[in-house]
Amino acid sequence: MENFQIYREDRWPHMFCPGCGIGTVMSCFQRAFLNKGLDLDRTAFVSGIGCSSRLAGYVYADSLHTTHGRALAFATGLKLAQKDLEVVVFTGDGDLGSIGGNHFIQACRRNMDLFVVCVNNNNYGMTGGQVSSTTWHDYLTTTTPKGNPEYPFDLSRVAATSGANYVARYTTAHPKQLVRVIEEGLGKKGLRFIEAWAACPTYYGRYNKMASPVEHTRWLKENSIHIEQMKVDGKTAEDDIDLQVTGKVTIGVLRDADRMSYLEAIQR
């Protein structure tokens, strides 16, 4: 398998830091995309601002690198103007969960026919490691030097409860599972949300005693728990909304519904 079947190799090496999980998400996305046999000429990529949003610029396809937090809104317009185009959104936790929070909720509520990949590295990497809406409680960032007093958003739960058809979460320590859920999601309609927890050794890792990519990857593996295991343990969906209850992030397919998508609804 060649590594650059959907990417612009003329832009390599890419700009991401050593060990950055975004690169792993790229590899997984490419594999799933190829497995699915989708056409690059009929797929468009939209992203916002932040490290993960730079991903759109590396795909050898039509790509729109937009403003901070608004990728889903741009993607909505693009999709409605060309309804048979597959529109993929690359975004991050700051872009989607903080500045773009409302667009995220509304796009899920509409069940807009978009495929959304959120690379969640739990902090603002591009600007140097500030607290984001998914930074864990008590964790250190440049803007929470005494530990984060706030609690994190569970982006996947937000997506699921807002109405997204398909919601799955894995980490970059689970590349094969990521490929599987991306592939599965690409074949569905409505809003499909893939949350990929990713290592940010340069900032989140460095401030939180996991500065090496290997340490950060281990942290991801150790701090995640599969939804099926949660059930075995007698934990409910409510338990894992507060990540502090289990101390772990739930991974797996969190929602797989068949609600009427936006396009289906307007084309009835």
């Binding site: 809104a73 993607a75 909505t76 409605l80 103007a81 060309q82 667009h103």
Partner: peptide, 23 residues
């Protein structure tokens, strides 16, 4: 196609997206 968006920021964003979609 018409859509009522969640605010004006997303309205103009959708318009720009649609323009790139050829509309």
């Amino acid at each position: 196609t018409v859509i009522q968006m969640e605010d004006e920021i997303s309205s103009i964003a959708a318009v720009i997206g649609a323009a790139w979609g050829g509309a």
